[in-house]
């Protein structure tokens, strides 16, 4: 088994006049859980559809488990488990029947398939609904059935398109746990537009925007790329309005943005963004003293992944 489970080189997919995926290259190593992040319509699903041999790329190439997705599509699919967006399962089958069907389609021997269905069904918490029709399942159970189907043949690579969408918080935690566990020995690619999700599950993040790859790295690396910090400020300033205070704050060197936020009664609350690496807490304290504001709270935090994501994906939109 090659160390690089997925190799994508200059992948491009054009639908009519739109470039859904534009010259994207990346590699995924064995044992990585890769989060595919991007706004809706950024090209996440399209890339996944190319990797699962559902669509052929317009340009570039992609290799999965060492096989070309176009030339050796059958071999690629043998190494893949795939959960498409919205989990389109057959509604007229029971969960057990569906898993048996999936096992037969994958050419699994009957004794192995029975064993795997039991094992995976247990891991995905499907035993209690095994006899229920897929069409009658709640969203969460349907999602788990889809996940079970993808993992049935113990594939080396799992491709999951928005695996936690539509689940309640408890289910989300369970599914994430499951993905993390699987990710220890397998390679997993999952797409999402929920940021805490990638932070919780992924060892590496790709951010894609308007079809282009805009970032690639671990969560820490991505955070380090984006310099600056954010401050939260709560103060009492009798005799002045929030606007006046804001005007003063914006005037401070290093502050790039200042937003009043709703806070406690009688106090003014602000969020400040600073672009540089410099710590502005001292400056802010001094400003408060000079202006006779009573500082109630001052808190500095590093950029969140959210900021990174917003900066990367909105910048792209402006450019194009």
């Amino acid at each position: 088994m090659p160390e690089l489970m997925i190799q994508v080189e200059n992948l491009t997919k054009v639908y009519g006049a739109t470039r859904a995926v534009d010259d994207v290259s990346f590699n995924v190593r064995k044992g990585e859980v890769l989060g595919f992040l991007g706004p809706n319509g950024a090209g996440k699903s399209t890339t996944m559809k190319v990797l699962t041999c559902y669509l052929a790329p317009t340009g570039g190439r992609a290799k999965v488990a060492g096989f070309d997705v176009f030339d050796d599509s059958l071999e690629v699919r043998k190494h893949l488990g795939y959960l498409p967006e919205d989990t389109p399962l057959y509604k007229d089958m029971t969960v057990l029947e569906y898993l048996q069907f999936a096992a037969a389609m994958r050419g699994m021997a009957s004794d192995r398939s029975a064993k795997r269905i039991k094992e995976i069904g247990g891991r995905c918490g499907l035993h209690e609904v095994a006899g229920k029709l897929v069409g009658e399942l709640s969203r969460g159970y349907r999602q788990r059935a889809g996940l079970a189907q993808a993992m049935l043949d113990d594939p080396d690579i799992l491709i999951l398109d928005e695996p936690t969408s539509g689940l309640d918080p408890n289910q989300i935690v369970e599914i994430r746990q499951l993905i993390k566990e699987v990710g220890k020995e397998k390679t997993v690619i999952l797409s999402t537009h929920i940021l805490p999700e990638v932070q919780a599950t992924c060892s590496r993040i790709l951010i894609i925007s308007s079809g282009k790859l805009v970032a690639d790295g671990t969560p820490d690396e991505l955070r380090a790329r984006e310099r600056g910090s954010r401050y939260r400020l709560v103060m009492e300033a009798s005799g002045t309005t929030a606007e006046a205070v804001k005007a003063r704050l914006v005037g401070i060197k290093g502050v790039s943005r200042c937003e009043p936020v709703r806070g406690e009664d009688g106090a003014h609350s602000f969020t400040l963004d600073a672009a540089g690496d410099e710590d502005l807490r001292k400056v802010l304290f001094r400003a408060a003293v000079d202006n006779k504001w009573t500082l109630l709270e001052l808190h500095r935090e590093a950029v969140s992944l959210e900021t990174v994501f917003r900066n990367l994906t909105t910048r792209e939109e402006v450019k194009s």
């Binding site: 041999c53 059958l74 893949l80 498409p84 399962l89 057959y90 509604k91 999936a102 389609m105 994958r106």
Partner: peptide, 14 residues
């Protein structure tokens, strides 16, 4: 129409 075709033809079957 239902999208299940995607599931079906991404299985390792010609």
């Amino acid at each position: 129409g239902s999208g299940s075709l995607e599931m079906l033809i991404t299985m390792p079957v010609p």
